[in-house]
Design a protein around this nucleic acid. Sequence first.
DNA 1: ACTTTCAAGTGACCGATGTCACCTCGCAAA
DNA 2: TTTGCGAGGTGACATCGGTCACTTGAAAGT
Lengths: 201, 201
Amino acid sequence: MIRVLLAEDQDLVRGAMAALLSMEPDIEVVAEIDRGDEVLTAALQSQPDVALLDIEMPGVDGIAAAAALRGGLPQCRVLMLTTFGRPGYLRRAMSSGATGFMLKDAPAAELAVAIRRTARGERVLDPQLAAQALSDGDSPLSSREAEVLVSAVDGSSAADVARRLFLSEGTVRNHLSAAIQKLGARNRMEAARIAREKGWI
Amino acid sequence: MIRVLLAEDQDLVRGAMAALLSMEPDIEVVAEIDRGDEVLTAALQSQPDVALLDIEMPGVDGIAAAAALRGGLPQCRVLMLTTFGRPGYLRRAMSSGATGFMLKDAPAAELAVAIRRTARGERVLDPQLAAQALSDGDSPLSSREAEVLVSAVDGSSAADVARRLFLSEGTVRNHLSAAIQKLGARNRMEAARIAREKGWI
DNA sequence: ACTTTCAAGTGACCGATGTCACCTCGCAAA
DNA sequence: TTTGCGAGGTGACATCGGTCACTTGAAAGT
């Protein structure tokens, strides 16, 4: 029996996935949670073999949850699950200790197969996405540039961002300008869009 | 037996929902599709009693699919399903002929109940969201203002939008300015964010 | 010790953006 | 039929945003 922990914030989707897995004779869902920050405690209690983690979750995201899990329960493998095929997501998931990485638009029949492979410690990942992640390289943004960019995308002015991050307005504009150039964008919004698509912010 | 058509673009989620519904003795999934523009043809072929439509889909969205369905197969009821609890979504879904409206973070056990009620023609909707939709009122944006706003959110300059919509640059700026004021925003990005949250664009 | 790298800041420049006053035109309700 | 409204446009204005040159200080390689 493979013991599975299921972390996914949308109740309907989580319940449906549990139903899907309940049809497999060798898979048992031993825990269901809807927040990233409850993954570790639930895992310590239920001792799963595989944790199926969504990336987009309230609390902390699935990537941070995977890192916590590797620290607290290293024998538990992680299969990351996400809506968005962003190369940076895959990169960050892998370096936070995930064994597999699966997209939600993969065939439903693949899920059980992927779980079994993950339980055996085999790598599960989309070849296209892996190639993309390798060719894109790592994020060219410095941590400060990324921080300023995320803080500016919601329509805040440079002055707002400066107040929020305790910087001068000129510095904020300089960081944004650097980010815009590094990403080959024409303004902050385009830069944010590109960085989001790559999974860099 | 209630015959159900399932339209949802993410294969894994769709398969999982089909598994969830297959456990109900009185519900049968007679069609599964992943695009909005294939809903009508699939429905005409499979003659479902209830169409379960996701809003976010490639091709045409679930709201447009619902409208097409009401024209081509009026006896089929529509239960709309969506990730985002945006008041404008509910409003537009209802006026395009949906019988029910359900969020993906509703309890999984509710789905079958909602389908049965939809099949009987009863209204299914989240009271909170309905109240919100009523208190928000309809979109204050004129059709042109909304059009200009959606065309400007991706980081395009006013000149770009002007070229794309065959307008003068000044007119684009005027429309954006009107949208910004009507939504109580401070710039085009904030206006876009507000309009998106409400489901007005 | 020296160079490189990055965060941070300053001051200046110019184009883009948001606002306002005011214009025409077509259409629909009073 | 007049009145009002929205689409579309023009020109002017102040502010914001993106860029550049240059400086400082701290950390890390060589």
